[in-house]
């Protein structure tokens, strides 16, 4: 995002513009008292969806996937349980361990802490989109070379986080890398290898590998 927005985009200035055409004023009145079903609301072009399954389209690893999910389904659960993309792991399920990390619009995020419906219209990259076992990306290659994995359950999350990190920090110091990957945890204790791997992957990436 650009640092400076035009004044017309500043909150509070353009608000009224968004109201036009939506017919929203008063839309919500009485909704919570159950006078209108979600279907009725949807038919009316309401901004309200669910609580039942709603169709969404997710753009994952460059492909569009259509699926139906309840609003309460997280992106992680949609990936794993609906789309069988099981590379992203469910570990803490509370946004603290990083095993579910995916890249959304270029930024690493915890997919366990994002609702699937919120991911609509965004470019999602999962571990499955980074490379294959036969054709690994530099981070994956470096993880293998430096044995930055044991049981491997945290590995996809680390690989995704490292890949995102290196994109914005192509020349990291050890300290940068340690800071940049502070949102991921490993239980087997592979950090020594991970540190070597990140720095090595940075070199490989620059070398065009």
């Amino acid at each position: 995002m650009s640092e400076k927005l035009k004044s017309s985009q500043v909150p509070g200035v353009s608000r009224r513009g968004f109201l036009k055409g939506l017919g929203v004023s008063g839309v919500a009145t009485g909704l919570l008292t159950g006078t209108e079903t979600p279907t009725e609301a949807a038919e009316r072009g309401s901004p309200i969806k669910g609580p039942g399954e709603i169709p969404i389209t997710l753009q994952i690893n460059g492909k569009k996937h259509q699926l139906s999910v309840e609003p309460r389904v997280t992106l992680l659960d949609a990936l794993r349980n609906r789309l069988d993309l099981t590379g992203s792991k469910k570990v803490c399920d509370r946004g603290t361990c990083g095993a579910c990390t995916v890249i959304v619009d270029g930024q690493p995020v915890y997919s366990c802490s994002m609702l699937a419906v919120e991911a609509e219209g965004r470019a999602i990259t999962t571990i499955e989109g980074l490379g294959t076992a036969e054709n690994m990306n530099p981070v994956q290659k470096a993880f293998v070379k430096h044995d930055a994995q044991q049981c491997g359950f945290c590995t996809p999350g680390f690989v995704v986080a490292c890949t995102a990190f290196l994109k914005t920090n192509p020349n990291p110091t050890l300290e940068d890398a340690r800071t940049g990957l502070g949102g991921n945890l490993c239980r087997c204790g592979t950090y020594a290898g991970i540190m070597d791997a990140v720095l090595d992957a940075a070199k490989m990436t620059k070398g065009g590998a």
Partner: peptide
């Protein structure tokens, strides 16, 4: 997690009107 409706308003005013 209990199920819930998901509302995605386009303006602040609309958002406020969707809140209880």
């Amino acid at each position: 997690m209990k199920s819930f409706e998901y509302a995605i308003p386009s303006s602040l005013e609309e958002a406020s009107s969707l809140l209880a």
